[in-house]
Simulated scan of single mutants.
Amino acid sequence: MTVAVPPTPFTATVLGLPRIGPHRELERAVEAYRSGAADAAELHTTARELRYAHLSVLAAAGLDSIPVGTFSYRDHLLDTAVMLGALPARVLDIADPLDRYFAAAQGTGTIAPLRSAQWFGTEYRHLVPEIDKQTRFSLHPQKLLAELAEATALGVPARPVVVGPLTFLTLSEHADGDPLDRLAEVVPLYQDLLARLADAGASWVQLDEPILGTDLTTTELARLRSTYAALCGTPRRPAVLVATSFGHNDSALAALSDMGIDGVALDFTAGATLRSVASIPALTRKLVVAGVVDGRDTWRTDLDAALSTLGSLLGVTGSVAVSSSCSLLHVPYALTPAPGLDERLRPFQACGAEKVTEIRILATALAEGTEAVATELRAAREATTQPIRLR
């Protein structure tokens, strides 16, 4: 049965997590595996320990919805290509799945890797999947289901995260034709994935669609509508949250909101506004995940301004959750191990751990009132209003 009433909305989250470890543990483990100094079991053990640490830290911080599936040995677009059976033909003869993955990511002596491209104005460079007439899509969701099972076993309120079909196809390299012409092949696989995630116990799923924050043609908006009408019409599925980080498009948001989604994550640091949200009647029945803590830079959040935005949103939406504007993979883990940081800047800075704390403070203030976090708000106010003196 299609989801008719979303599950209880969550209140505090982030849209994604760092991958390489606070001391670059994953990077070193991958290098050891690729050089032959470590085997696959050792690499997988390091990865699992990092994922467990991430889950434990976010749960302890009080987040009531925690992303899973954002872990990657290299890149989330490549992981999506693997999930959809869309690796290039030149790596398919490699029998071992892990070696096949790294051949696509980094190449070998005889195989060229996928090229990379800038990810929506950030310093991160994603790998570009290659799609041609020989590409035959098929669903391989084992990685995502395994990471969901890990989190569930730990009692973590997990929310699977997947790159959405529009963003995946648009950012891929196509030998010919309009990339969105392949939606008819890909959307049924996403429908199958949604059903499998529901069967595995997921109450929410996050589909990352940053392409919806860019300028879209009339044809692209029509394909947005048909895609999400199909996905949200899946007979059995979790509640669908669509994340549109790094930009904002009023037309895309209006179209998306009418297609049966259950929530939308908006980037209030990159174009989303109260006015645009208030102008869409359908959002009065949705969860709005408000990205008021910037996940792209290392400056502290103006918590008073963020609270003002959040409070106003409560009056025009079904419910509000506090979030980072995008995945925290774009910032260091924490200020503590940040070598070379000018100590005079430290009071103004916030990395991953500090941004999670800001989210918790804002969510508590929204739910219980500012008196519940008066000390934290006062400290943040003092830190962000003092002048920076570097001389």
Rank of each mutant, 00 (worst) to 15 (best):
T2C: 14
T2K: 15
A4H: 14
A4F: 11
P6I: 06
T8L: 12
T11W: 07
A12H: 11
V14R: 07
V14K: 11
P18D: 06
L26A: 04
E31T: 15
R34Y: 04
S35G: 12
A40F: 09
L43C: 03
L43K: 01
V57K: 15
G62Q: 09
S65H: 10
G69L: 08
S72M: 03
D75Y: 03
L77P: 10
D79P: 00
T80Q: 08
A81T: 06
M83P: 10
M83F: 03
L87I: 01
P88D: 11
A89P: 08
I94V: 12
I94S: 06
D96A: 09
D99A: 10
R100P: 07
G107N: 03
G109Y: 04
G109C: 04
T110M: 03
L114G: 07
A117K: 07
A117H: 04
F120A: 06
F120Q: 05
G121L: 07
Y124F: 13
R125A: 03
H126M: 10
R136S: 07
S138I: 00
L145K: 00
A149G: 00
E150P: 00
T152V: 00
G155H: 03
R159D: 01
P160M: 02
V162S: 00
S172Y: 01
E173P: 04
D176T: 14
D178Q: 06
D181N: 11
L183V: 05
L194A: 15
A198S: 14
D199L: 14
A200I: 13
G201F: 10
D208C: 09
P210M: 11
G213Q: 13
G213M: 14
T214E: 15
A222W: 05
R223H: 11
C232Y: 10
R236D: 12
P238G: 06
V242I: 00
V242P: 01
N249L: 02
D250F: 00
D250V: 03
S251H: 11
A252S: 00
L253Y: 04
L253Q: 02
A254M: 09
V264P: 09
F268T: 07
S276G: 08
L283Y: 02
T284L: 01
L287G: 01
V288Q: 02
V289W: 02
V292A: 01
G295W: 08
D297S: 09
D302Q: 03
L310I: 02
G311I: 02
V316C: 04
S325C: 05
S325G: 05
L328I: 05
P332C: 06
A334R: 07
T336H: 09
P337V: 01
P339W: 02
L341M: 13
L341I: 12
L345C: 06
Q349P: 03
Q349H: 13
C351W: 08
K355R: 05
I359L: 14
L362R: 12
A363Y: 08
T364M: 13
T364H: 10
A365M: 08
A365E: 07
E368G: 10
E371L: 15
A374S: 15
R378W: 15
R378P: 13
A380S: 15
R381I: 12
I388Q: 13
L390C: 13
